[in-house]
Amino acid sequence: MTDYSPLLLSLKVAGISTFFVFIFGVFFAHLFSRKKFFGKSIIESLFMLPLVLPPTVVGFGLLILFGKNGFIGSWLLNWFDFQVVFTWIGAVIASIVVSFPLMYQSAAAAFESLDARMENAARTMGASNWRVFWTISFRLAWPGLLAGLVLSFARGLGEFGATLMLAGYIPGKTDTIPMAIYFAVESGQMEKATFWVVIIVALGFSTIMWLNWWSRRNIERYKNDNA
C-alpha cells in the first residue's frame, strides 16, 4: 500500500501557492505595466531575483525572515501564535517566492503587449478603472496570464531547495513529491523514487502539454483580429 500523502500535499501546496502568486503577479504586473517611476527597474529586478538565486539561498533568506526569531516570523508568532517554519504553510511560502517571477514576467509581458486603445475606448464609454481592467485588460491578457499561472503551478509542484529549508522534511507533514524523490534517491530506494518520478513527470508534462494545446487553439481563434 503506497502512501499517497506526498501527492495530495504537493497538489495542495502548489494549488494554494499558485492562487496567491496569480493574484499578486497580476496585481503588480498591471500596476507597473503603464507606469514609469523611479526605482521601477529596481523593484522588478527584486521580483526576478528568486529565478536566478540558488534555491538554498532563497530558502536561507526565507528562514531568516520567517524563522521563529525572524523579522516576520517572530511577529506572526507573537500576534497570531502562528508558525511558518516546519509546517506545510512554509512550503506554500517557499513555493510562492520561487514561482512569483514566472507569473510576474508572463503577466507583465501580457499587459504590455495590450493595445492601449482598447482600454482607452472602454474609458471613453464611461467604464470605471476596475471595469476596464476586468472586462478588457484581464480578458485580453488572459492567454499570457494563463501561461504564467500554469508555469507557476508546475514550478510550485517541483519546488525542492527552498522548501526543504523552510518547511523541513517531516514525514507525513511536509513531505512533498520532490522531497520524497530526493530522499528516496539518496538512500537508494530506487523503486520508491521511480514511482514518484513517474507521477511528477506525468503531472508536469500534462500541464504543459495542455497549456501548449490551449494556447495554440486560442491563437487560431483570434488570428484575424488585428485588422
Binding site: 516546519f86 526543504l164 529549508m165 523541513g168 522534511y169 517531516i170 514525514p171 507525513g172 507533514k173 530526493y182 530522499f183 539518496e186
Partner: peptide, 12 residues
C-alpha cells in the same frame, strides 16, 4: 516521530 525535522546535510 512528529517532532523530527529531517535535513539533507549537517549544515542544515
Amino acid at each position: 516521530q512528529g517532532s523530527l525535522v529531517l535535513s539533507s546535510d549537517v549544515r542544515q
